[in-house]
Design a protein around this nucleic acid. Structure first.
Lengths: 357, 357
DNA sequence: CGGAGATAGGCGAACGTTCGCTCAAGGGAC
DNA sequence: GTCCCTTGAGCGAACGTTCGCCTATCTCCG
């Protein structure tokens, strides 16, 4: 019941008959000059007492907690969860723990969350909360006080960005639809105030123009990343433009809502309307019909973010341009194309243009 | 670039012309006897230097980190993510941070993750990883070293359990299907080795018997919580028992796979086969057809888990029986019932029978 | 005018480490 | 037999707090 007290170095040392500093060298220090005998005695004593190093004390003297902070936007979104899990595991492989702060949906508590992390003296911060991409106060805190990396834009810069190629994501999806002969291609987007949304929209328009089509506001419907919001937006889109024959949706979760709205409107997918999502969540393949989607490497992004952050913490030089991982189109039944084919985004990492991210 | 060093109490005190202990009292201590003048000077100095208390040092002397550890199974599962976010926010409201460790899918690194948390001297641990429900080593670590609460069974007990009423979940879903007149009711489950699965299955069988039906192994298909696994299991189920007219699926994510398999087999939902899921994920309402589901209060569970853990940390007495939150059936189109109605699980919290959880 | 009590603030110790310096003993080379 | 070097281990200091106790000054009362 009462949590057993932890044995300290002093207790271990006493039991082994050495000074606690010597015990420290054996148990936690690296290379030291101690006789094998003494070392064995110390190790035995530690084992018997169940010694567990107190990293708090260690942090104090070493001025490093081996802990990273993760500022998370909406973790219930599968995409961010994939990122976060991969990031934590990569951090742990490198001896670091991860302290998580989940923002409220509006992101109003960004400064509070970052302050919490700073007071706990995290060695670095990963910002993964698009709600904060225009938050100058948080940006300033990250710039001034702690090494950081971000999944999204940080006002004023100074924080390396890791992510995927959002513009290419939009381009890939819509180019595929255009390539199938669609002329009236709509899109259901996330909130316009998010840069990721504007980037994907730009890619979407790139693809339209490449196909000789003119972007039209009537074919764009803004939603809020939820299935419900997307269903509503899709209804608006169908009302405005009955001739729409294809839709690019900014996330697979929203695609669920779009499919729902199309079914309710009596449009068959893909016969009447083709649909392409993005993220390529695990469930996408099992929607009805199976959803064509642009795969975004969230897990790999999480690992890269941690690696970059650890390098920054070591004060190694890090690239200043955003590191954008490539995305790939996974074709399935929902667009009426030939399922099974994949189109990878051409360029390798890293990308260099700010407007891509 | 170089992370600015943090100002210490000594520096603040020097600037304000007081001893650092006095500064400590004003800045971090509670009620102290200090003149308003002095306090102002200290506060001003702290503001000017951007003082941020070093909670590491505080933790060392107070022997409390105000940090909780969360051992997470599969965070990419929306249900656990809801739990984790609510738990973290509740912890933060109470001045605690949350350190997360994500298990590998097999859960083989449970002891390693818990050790990492213990070395960081978390004040308590929340176990939310069904992979560990038979892990005696982890159970022993939790029991001996730190206050803990668990979302699942812990071998040997001694760790309070918080969760929802899984047996009732199964009962509610299947009773609804039976009430609609179905006689051949199948179920696609999670892995049998998970207690939650066996509990839900027991509830399912309860409902069958209450309706005068005899449970049959042929109507049970085991899956792995994924859409793909569920699709496969559903195909097996249809092969074994072509007469099945209703299916209870152990999660909404798996229900996606079941709907997919039914569509592929040419069975219409709900006309040919009725489907009920559980979890009531946000997307459930927007599947085609809208999915009837048993709502499980993951967020509330997370909050309760944290409250219980904090009480345990304060050494307040906590109930020894599992705290099981009620679930409710949300009826939608997929079962062919009358959408919009809800059936709440009758009993209030807490439940007392071990086999319920 | 003396003493008690309140008020403001200082001071030493402790928390559990790491780090670098010191010191004793032993061994080999001359 | 002396000197030096290596090896093994001890020791003090520091990291930035909190906590309890101590002290100096002031106020008020008899």
């Amino acid at each position: 019941m009462a949590a057993g007290r932890y044995a300290s170095l002093k207790e271990v040392a006493a039991r082994a008959g050495v000074s606690f500093q010597t015990a420290s060298k054996v148990l936690n220090g690296g290379r030291v000059r101690v006789s094998a005998q003494t070392a064995d005695r110390i190790l035995a004593a530690a084992r018997e007492l169940g010694y567990s190093p107190n990293t708090i004390a260690r942090s104090l003297v070493q001025r490093s907690t081996c802990t990273l902070g993760l500022v998370a936007g909406d973790m219930t979104d599968g995409a961010l969860a994939q990122f976060a899990v991969a990031a934590e595991q990569e951090a742990r492989r490198n001896g670091h723990a991860v302290l998580v702060g989940n923002l409220d949906p509006a992101g109003d508590d960004g400064a509070e969350v970052v302050r919490m992390l700073l007071e706990r003296r995290v060695d670095g911060v990963i910002a993964a909360a698009p709600q904060l991409e225009e938050d100058a106060q948080v940006a300033e805190m990250l710039r001034r006080h702690v090494p950081a990396v971000s999944l999204h834009h940080v006002p004023g810069g100074g924080v390396p960005v890791v992510g995927s190629n959002h513009r290419e994501t939009g381009r890939l999806a819509t180019a595929h639809l255009a390539g199938l002969g669609h002329r009236r291609i709509g899109t259901v987007t996330g909130p316009f105030r998010r840069r990721v949304v504007r980037s994907r929209l730009r890619g979407h328009e790139d693809a339209l123009r490449e196909a000789g089509l003119e972007p039209s506001e009537d074919l764009v419907a803004e939603a809020d990343w939820t299935s419900g919001g997307a269903a509503h937006a899709a209804r608006l889109l169908l009302d405005r433009e009955r001739a729409v024959s294809a839709v690019f949706v900014h996330s697979d979760t929203m695609a669920i809502g779009v499919l729902s709205a199309l079914a309710a409107a009596g449009r068959r997918v893909p016969d009447d309307v083709a649909v392409v999502g993005c993220d390529d969540m695990p469930f996408a393949e099992f929607l009805t019909p199976a959803l064509t989607s642009v795969r975004v490497p969230f897990g790999e992004t999480g690992e890269q973010a941690v690696r970059l952050l650890l390098r920054r913490i070591q004060e190694e030089p890090v690239p200043t341009e955003p590191l954008l991982l490539p995305v790939e189109l996974v074709v399935r039944a929902s667009c009426g194309g030939r399922p099974g084919t994949r189109a990878e985004s051409a360029p390798a990492i890293p990308f260099h243009r700010e407007e891509d991210k």
